[in-house]
Simulated scan of single mutants.
Amino acid sequence: MQMELIKLVRNIYSTNEFIPLHAPSFSGNEQKYVTETITSTFVSSVGKFVDEFEQKVQQVTGSAKAIATVNGTAALHSALYLANVRAGDLVITQALTFVATCNALYHMGAKPIFIDIELKAFGLCPVATEQWLSENAFIDEQGQCRHKDSQAAIKAVMPMHTFGHPVQIDELLTVCQNWNLTLIEDAAESLGSYYKGKHTGTLGRFGALSFNGNKVITTGGGGMILCQNQEDGIKAKHLTTTAKVPHPYEFYHDEAGFNYRMPNLNAALGCAQIEQLEVKLASKRLIAEQYLQFFENTDYCFVVEPEYAHSNYWLNAVVCPDANARDTLLETTNKQGIMTRPVWQLMHRLPMFANELKGDLANSEWAEARLVNLPSSPNY
Protein backbone atom coordinates (compact mmCIF):
# COMPACT_ATOMS: atom_id res chain seq x y z
CA MET A 1 0.00 0.00 0.00
CA GLN A 2 2.84 2.39 0.82
CA MET A 3 4.42 2.11 -2.63
CA GLU A 4 1.03 2.65 -4.31
CA LEU A 5 0.57 5.78 -2.19
CA ILE A 6 4.02 7.03 -3.23
CA LYS A 7 3.05 6.51 -6.87
CA LEU A 8 -0.18 8.46 -6.35
CA VAL A 9 1.61 11.39 -4.71
CA ARG A 10 4.19 11.53 -7.49
CA ASN A 11 1.38 11.49 -10.07
CA ILE A 12 -0.42 14.32 -8.28
CA TYR A 13 2.67 16.53 -8.29
CA SER A 14 4.16 15.22 -11.57
CA THR A 15 7.71 14.88 -10.26
CA ASN A 16 10.26 12.31 -9.21
CA GLU A 17 12.03 14.87 -7.05
CA PHE A 18 11.54 15.41 -3.32
CA ILE A 19 7.94 16.35 -2.45
CA PRO A 20 7.47 18.57 0.65
CA LEU A 21 4.53 18.46 3.02
CA HIS A 22 3.22 21.92 2.16
CA ALA A 23 5.23 24.36 0.07
CA PRO A 24 4.29 27.93 -0.88
CA SER A 25 3.61 28.80 -4.50
CA PHE A 26 4.18 32.19 -6.11
CA SER A 27 2.46 32.48 -9.47
CA GLY A 28 0.75 35.87 -9.32
CA ASN A 29 1.68 39.44 -8.46
CA GLU A 30 4.07 38.62 -5.61
CA GLN A 31 7.21 39.97 -7.27
CA LYS A 32 5.40 43.03 -8.59
CA TYR A 33 3.93 44.05 -5.22
CA VAL A 34 7.09 43.34 -3.23
CA THR A 35 9.20 45.31 -5.72
CA GLU A 36 6.72 48.18 -5.47
CA THR A 37 7.12 48.13 -1.70
CA ILE A 38 10.91 48.24 -1.90
CA THR A 39 10.80 51.06 -4.45
CA SER A 40 8.47 53.06 -2.20
CA THR A 41 10.88 52.59 0.78
CA PHE A 42 7.84 51.83 3.00
CA VAL A 43 8.93 48.32 3.94
CA SER A 44 8.11 48.41 7.66
CA SER A 45 4.77 48.60 9.49
CA VAL A 46 3.51 51.69 7.65
CA GLY A 47 2.40 51.31 4.04
CA LYS A 48 -0.59 50.80 1.81
CA PHE A 49 -0.29 47.02 1.56
CA VAL A 50 -0.85 46.52 5.30
CA ASP A 51 -4.22 48.27 5.08
CA GLU A 52 -5.10 46.50 1.82
CA PHE A 53 -4.25 43.08 3.20
CA GLU A 54 -6.34 43.66 6.31
CA GLN A 55 -9.28 44.74 4.16
CA LYS A 56 -8.97 41.71 1.90
CA VAL A 57 -8.84 39.26 4.81
CA GLN A 58 -11.77 41.08 6.38
CA GLN A 59 -13.77 40.63 3.17
CA VAL A 60 -12.86 36.95 2.77
CA THR A 61 -13.64 36.03 6.37
CA GLY A 62 -16.56 38.36 7.04
CA SER A 63 -14.83 39.58 10.18
CA ALA A 64 -15.92 42.93 11.66
CA LYS A 65 -12.26 43.96 11.82
CA ALA A 66 -8.99 42.25 10.86
CA ILE A 67 -5.65 43.39 12.31
CA ALA A 68 -2.39 42.20 10.76
CA THR A 69 0.42 40.98 13.04
CA VAL A 70 3.98 39.72 12.65
CA ASN A 71 2.94 36.09 13.15
CA GLY A 72 0.12 33.87 14.34
CA THR A 73 1.49 33.60 17.88
CA ALA A 74 1.42 37.40 18.20
CA ALA A 75 -2.20 37.35 17.01
CA LEU A 76 -3.09 34.75 19.65
CA HIS A 77 -1.21 36.60 22.39
CA SER A 78 -3.00 39.85 21.51
CA ALA A 79 -6.40 38.14 21.42
CA LEU A 80 -5.84 36.58 24.83
CA TYR A 81 -4.72 39.90 26.29
CA LEU A 82 -7.74 41.71 24.81
CA ALA A 83 -9.94 39.01 26.40
CA ASN A 84 -8.46 40.02 29.77
CA VAL A 85 -6.35 36.89 30.22
CA ARG A 86 -3.48 37.73 32.57
CA ALA A 87 -0.67 36.01 34.49
CA GLY A 88 -2.01 33.28 36.74
CA ASP A 89 -5.22 32.79 34.77
CA LEU A 90 -6.30 29.49 33.23
CA VAL A 91 -7.39 28.86 29.63
CA ILE A 92 -9.01 25.64 28.37
CA THR A 93 -7.45 24.27 25.20
CA GLN A 94 -6.56 20.97 23.55
CA ALA A 95 -3.45 18.85 24.06
CA LEU A 96 -3.44 17.92 20.38
CA THR A 97 -2.28 21.18 18.85
CA PHE A 98 0.83 22.94 17.59
CA VAL A 99 2.99 24.31 20.40
CA ALA A 100 2.29 27.96 19.44
CA THR A 101 -1.20 27.66 20.93
CA CYS A 102 0.32 27.06 24.36
CA ASN A 103 3.39 29.26 23.90
CA ALA A 104 1.07 32.27 23.66
CA LEU A 105 -0.24 31.38 27.13
CA TYR A 106 3.17 30.57 28.58
CA HIS A 107 4.74 33.90 27.69
CA MET A 108 1.94 35.88 29.33
CA GLY A 109 2.11 33.82 32.50
CA ALA A 110 -1.25 32.10 31.93
CA LYS A 111 -1.68 28.33 32.07
CA PRO A 112 -3.47 25.81 29.85
CA ILE A 113 -6.02 23.24 30.95
CA PHE A 114 -5.77 20.34 28.52
CA ILE A 115 -9.11 18.82 27.52
CA ASP A 116 -9.66 15.93 25.11
CA ILE A 117 -10.59 16.17 21.44
CA GLU A 118 -13.50 14.63 19.56
CA LEU A 119 -12.63 12.32 16.66
CA LYS A 120 -14.63 13.99 13.88
CA ALA A 121 -12.62 17.18 13.40
CA PHE A 122 -9.90 16.30 15.95
CA GLY A 123 -10.69 19.53 17.79
CA LEU A 124 -11.60 20.42 21.37
CA CYS A 125 -14.52 18.30 22.55
CA PRO A 126 -17.43 20.33 23.99
CA VAL A 127 -18.76 17.34 25.95
CA ALA A 128 -15.40 16.73 27.61
CA THR A 129 -15.04 20.47 28.27
CA GLU A 130 -18.43 20.72 29.98
CA GLN A 131 -17.74 17.58 32.01
CA TRP A 132 -14.37 18.85 33.25
CA LEU A 133 -15.85 22.20 34.24
CA SER A 134 -18.76 20.55 36.05
CA GLU A 135 -16.35 18.45 38.09
CA ASN A 136 -13.56 20.97 38.66
CA ALA A 137 -14.91 24.53 38.44
CA PHE A 138 -17.45 26.90 39.98
CA ILE A 139 -18.73 30.42 39.35
CA ASP A 140 -18.04 32.84 42.21
CA GLU A 141 -20.28 35.64 43.49
CA GLN A 142 -18.83 38.07 40.94
CA GLY A 143 -19.64 35.69 38.08
CA GLN A 144 -16.04 34.60 37.55
CA CYS A 145 -15.39 30.98 36.64
CA ARG A 146 -12.76 29.52 38.97
CA HIS A 147 -10.88 26.27 39.49
CA LYS A 148 -12.12 24.61 42.67
CA ASP A 149 -8.76 23.56 44.08
CA SER A 150 -6.53 26.53 43.23
CA GLN A 151 -9.22 29.24 43.04
CA ALA A 152 -7.47 30.48 39.87
CA ALA A 153 -9.69 32.29 37.38
CA ILE A 154 -10.60 30.38 34.22
CA LYS A 155 -10.94 33.08 31.56
CA ALA A 156 -11.30 31.54 28.13
CA VAL A 157 -11.75 28.51 25.91
CA MET A 158 -9.31 28.30 22.98
CA PRO A 159 -9.96 25.50 20.46
CA MET A 160 -7.75 24.96 17.43
CA HIS A 161 -9.18 24.05 14.00
CA THR A 162 -6.94 21.04 13.45
CA PHE A 163 -5.59 20.68 9.89
CA GLY A 164 -8.16 23.32 8.88
CA HIS A 165 -11.25 21.32 9.92
CA PRO A 166 -13.68 23.45 11.99
CA VAL A 167 -14.42 22.37 15.55
CA GLN A 168 -17.93 22.13 17.02
CA ILE A 169 -18.30 25.87 17.62
CA ASP A 170 -22.00 26.07 18.58
CA GLU A 171 -21.57 23.53 21.33
CA LEU A 172 -18.42 25.23 22.61
CA LEU A 173 -20.20 28.59 22.60
CA THR A 174 -22.91 27.05 24.77
CA VAL A 175 -20.26 25.86 27.23
CA CYS A 176 -18.75 29.34 27.27
CA GLN A 177 -22.14 30.92 27.96
CA ASN A 178 -22.82 28.45 30.79
CA TRP A 179 -19.51 29.25 32.48
CA ASN A 180 -18.96 32.95 31.57
CA LEU A 181 -15.95 32.21 29.41
CA THR A 182 -14.64 33.93 26.27
CA LEU A 183 -14.22 31.84 23.11
CA ILE A 184 -10.98 32.54 21.23
CA GLU A 185 -10.45 30.52 18.05
CA ASP A 186 -6.98 29.41 17.09
CA ALA A 187 -7.77 29.52 13.38
CA ALA A 188 -4.11 29.52 12.34
CA GLU A 189 -4.60 26.64 9.92
CA SER A 190 -8.10 27.36 8.66
CA LEU A 191 -8.15 30.28 6.24
CA GLY A 192 -10.85 29.30 3.74
CA SER A 193 -12.70 26.98 6.15
CA TYR A 194 -16.35 27.55 7.08
CA TYR A 195 -18.50 26.40 9.97
CA LYS A 196 -22.18 26.31 8.96
CA GLY A 197 -21.49 28.99 6.35
CA LYS A 198 -19.44 31.27 8.62
CA HIS A 199 -15.69 31.59 8.32
CA THR A 200 -13.63 30.12 11.13
CA GLY A 201 -12.20 32.72 13.49
CA THR A 202 -15.32 34.88 13.34
CA LEU A 203 -17.62 32.95 15.66
CA GLY A 204 -15.68 33.53 18.88
CA ARG A 205 -15.00 37.00 20.22
CA PHE A 206 -11.53 36.73 18.66
CA GLY A 207 -9.82 34.52 16.12
CA ALA A 208 -6.19 34.23 15.06
CA LEU A 209 -4.87 33.34 11.60
CA SER A 210 -1.34 32.41 10.54
CA PHE A 211 0.40 33.18 7.25
CA ASN A 212 3.54 31.17 7.90
CA GLY A 213 5.31 29.71 4.85
CA ASN A 214 3.45 26.40 5.17
CA LYS A 215 -0.08 27.84 5.29
CA VAL A 216 -2.68 28.06 2.49
CA ILE A 217 -1.40 31.55 1.67
CA THR A 218 1.78 33.05 3.09
CA THR A 219 3.29 36.42 3.91
CA GLY A 220 6.59 34.73 4.82
CA GLY A 221 5.77 35.27 8.47
CA GLY A 222 2.57 36.88 9.60
CA GLY A 223 -0.75 36.57 11.36
CA MET A 224 -4.12 38.26 11.73
CA ILE A 225 -6.45 39.00 14.63
CA LEU A 226 -10.09 38.60 13.64
CA CYS A 227 -12.48 40.62 15.80
CA GLN A 228 -16.20 40.05 16.18
CA ASN A 229 -16.93 43.75 16.71
CA GLN A 230 -15.48 47.10 15.66
CA GLU A 231 -14.66 48.22 19.19
CA ASP A 232 -12.40 45.22 19.77
CA GLY A 233 -10.80 45.85 16.39
CA ILE A 234 -9.93 49.43 17.29
CA LYS A 235 -8.44 48.24 20.58
CA ALA A 236 -6.48 45.51 18.81
CA LYS A 237 -4.92 47.90 16.34
CA HIS A 238 -4.02 50.34 19.13
CA LEU A 239 -2.53 47.60 21.31
CA THR A 240 -0.43 46.06 18.51
CA THR A 241 1.04 49.43 17.45
CA THR A 242 2.71 50.10 20.83
CA ALA A 243 -0.48 51.78 22.10
CA LYS A 244 0.63 55.07 20.58
CA VAL A 245 -1.96 57.85 20.71
CA PRO A 246 -2.21 59.62 17.32
CA HIS A 247 -0.58 63.06 17.27
CA PRO A 248 1.15 65.15 14.59
CA TYR A 249 4.51 64.88 16.35
CA GLU A 250 4.25 63.87 20.04
CA PHE A 251 5.08 60.35 21.28
CA TYR A 252 2.50 59.40 23.87
CA HIS A 253 1.50 55.84 24.73
CA ASP A 254 -1.46 55.32 27.04
CA GLU A 255 -0.74 51.70 28.03
CA ALA A 256 1.93 49.02 27.67
CA GLY A 257 1.38 47.86 24.10
CA PHE A 258 3.00 45.40 21.71
CA ASN A 259 5.13 46.04 18.63
CA TYR A 260 3.26 43.38 16.67
CA ARG A 261 2.34 45.09 13.39
CA MET A 262 2.96 43.24 10.15
CA PRO A 263 5.59 44.93 7.91
CA ASN A 264 4.40 46.35 4.60
CA LEU A 265 6.86 44.06 2.80
CA ASN A 266 5.09 40.96 4.14
CA ALA A 267 1.65 42.44 3.53
CA ALA A 268 2.55 43.02 -0.13
CA LEU A 269 3.22 39.31 -0.48
CA GLY A 270 -0.07 38.58 1.28
CA CYS A 271 -2.05 40.81 -1.09
CA ALA A 272 -0.71 38.90 -4.07
CA GLN A 273 -1.31 35.53 -2.40
CA ILE A 274 -4.90 36.21 -1.37
CA GLU A 275 -5.75 37.07 -4.98
CA GLN A 276 -5.13 33.36 -5.70
CA LEU A 277 -6.89 31.99 -2.62
CA GLU A 278 -9.88 30.46 -4.40
CA VAL A 279 -7.65 28.70 -6.94
CA LYS A 280 -5.45 27.32 -4.17
CA LEU A 281 -8.45 26.09 -2.19
CA ALA A 282 -10.00 24.42 -5.24
CA SER A 283 -6.73 22.63 -5.96
CA LYS A 284 -6.45 21.43 -2.38
CA ARG A 285 -9.97 19.97 -2.44
CA LEU A 286 -9.18 18.08 -5.63
CA ILE A 287 -6.06 16.61 -4.03
CA ALA A 288 -8.06 15.64 -0.94
CA GLU A 289 -10.59 13.87 -3.16
CA GLN A 290 -7.82 11.80 -4.75
CA TYR A 291 -6.55 10.76 -1.32
CA LEU A 292 -10.08 9.91 -0.21
CA GLN A 293 -10.61 7.64 -3.21
CA PHE A 294 -7.22 6.00 -2.70
CA PHE A 295 -7.89 5.05 0.92
CA GLU A 296 -11.42 3.72 0.32
CA ASN A 297 -11.74 0.02 1.06
CA THR A 298 -8.46 -0.03 3.01
CA ASP A 299 -7.65 -0.25 6.72
CA TYR A 300 -6.69 3.44 6.59
CA CYS A 301 -9.24 6.22 7.07
CA PHE A 302 -8.77 9.54 5.30
CA VAL A 303 -9.80 12.54 7.42
CA VAL A 304 -12.72 14.35 5.76
CA GLU A 305 -14.49 17.58 6.64
CA PRO A 306 -17.31 17.25 9.23
CA GLU A 307 -20.86 17.34 7.85
CA TYR A 308 -21.40 20.84 9.32
CA ALA A 309 -18.28 22.31 7.69
CA HIS A 310 -16.56 23.26 4.47
CA SER A 311 -12.83 22.74 5.10
CA ASN A 312 -9.75 24.12 3.39
CA TYR A 313 -7.96 20.75 3.73
CA TRP A 314 -4.81 22.58 4.81
CA LEU A 315 -3.02 19.36 5.70
CA ASN A 316 -4.44 16.12 4.42
CA ALA A 317 -4.40 13.44 7.09
CA VAL A 318 -4.97 9.72 7.30
CA VAL A 319 -5.73 7.60 10.38
CA CYS A 320 -3.61 4.44 10.35
CA PRO A 321 -4.82 1.17 11.88
CA ASP A 322 -2.29 1.39 14.72
CA ALA A 323 1.03 2.91 15.77
CA ASN A 324 3.08 0.28 13.91
CA ALA A 325 1.24 0.99 10.66
CA ARG A 326 1.80 4.72 11.26
CA ASP A 327 5.54 4.25 11.74
CA THR A 328 5.84 2.03 8.67
CA LEU A 329 4.03 4.60 6.54
CA LEU A 330 6.24 7.43 7.82
CA GLU A 331 9.48 5.51 7.34
CA THR A 332 8.66 4.22 3.85
CA THR A 333 7.41 7.50 2.40
CA ASN A 334 10.21 9.63 3.83
CA LYS A 335 12.86 7.22 2.57
CA GLN A 336 11.32 7.59 -0.89
CA GLY A 337 11.49 11.40 -0.84
CA ILE A 338 7.84 11.95 0.06
CA MET A 339 7.55 14.14 3.15
CA THR A 340 4.95 12.85 5.58
CA ARG A 341 4.70 13.76 9.24
CA PRO A 342 3.05 12.46 12.42
CA VAL A 343 0.74 14.78 14.32
CA TRP A 344 2.43 16.99 16.92
CA GLN A 345 3.43 15.45 20.23
CA LEU A 346 0.67 16.10 22.73
CA MET A 347 1.30 19.26 24.73
CA HIS A 348 1.17 17.60 28.15
CA ARG A 349 4.11 15.42 27.11
CA LEU A 350 6.37 18.46 26.61
CA PRO A 351 8.52 19.45 29.61
CA MET A 352 7.19 23.02 29.98
CA PHE A 353 3.55 21.84 30.11
CA ALA A 354 3.96 18.47 31.85
CA ASN A 355 2.48 19.63 35.16
CA GLU A 356 -0.55 21.54 33.89
CA LEU A 357 -4.16 20.63 34.62
CA LYS A 358 -5.73 18.10 32.28
CA GLY A 359 -8.72 15.87 31.77
CA ASP A 360 -8.91 12.36 30.36
CA LEU A 361 -7.01 12.55 27.04
CA ALA A 362 -7.86 9.11 25.65
CA ASN A 363 -8.97 10.38 22.22
CA SER A 364 -5.93 12.64 21.92
CA GLU A 365 -3.58 9.76 22.71
CA TRP A 366 -5.43 7.47 20.27
CA ALA A 367 -5.09 10.05 17.48
CA GLU A 368 -1.46 10.80 18.28
CA ALA A 369 -0.60 7.13 17.74
CA ARG A 370 -2.34 6.91 14.35
CA LEU A 371 -2.42 10.22 12.44
CA VAL A 372 -0.14 10.92 9.49
CA ASN A 373 -0.11 14.10 7.41
CA LEU A 374 0.34 13.72 3.64
CA PRO A 375 1.72 16.16 1.03
CA SER A 376 -0.87 18.92 0.66
CA SER A 377 0.63 21.74 -1.41
CA PRO A 378 -1.81 23.28 -3.90
CA ASN A 379 -0.99 22.13 -7.41
CA TYR A 380 -2.15 24.28 -10.32
Rank of each mutant, 00 (worst) to 15 (best):
A268V: 01
K244G: 08
G220D: 00
K280G: 05
P248A: 05
L315V: 12
Q94L: 05
Y313K: 01
G207D: 07
N379M: 10
L361Y: 07
L173C: 13
L209W: 01
A95C: 02
E305G: 14
D360L: 00
R285Q: 15
Q293D: 14
A256C: 12
F138T: 08
N71A: 12
N316C: 15
P378V: 01
T340A: 09
L90Q: 10
D360V: 01
C227I: 05
E368K: 07
N324W: 11
L277C: 05
G222Q: 02
L226G: 07
A369F: 06
A288R: 00
E331H: 11
N29C: 00
L277F: 03
L329R: 00
K148A: 13
G28P: 04
C271R: 13
Q177W: 02
L96V: 12
S25H: 05
L119E: 13
K215E: 08
F211M: 04
T340V: 15
D327W: 08
V85Y: 01
S193M: 01
N212C: 11
T129G: 02
E278Y: 06
V34A: 07
L133G: 04
Y33Q: 11
D360C: 02
F49K: 15
I338V: 15
E118W: 00
N214K: 02
L209V: 02
E250A: 12
F53N: 10
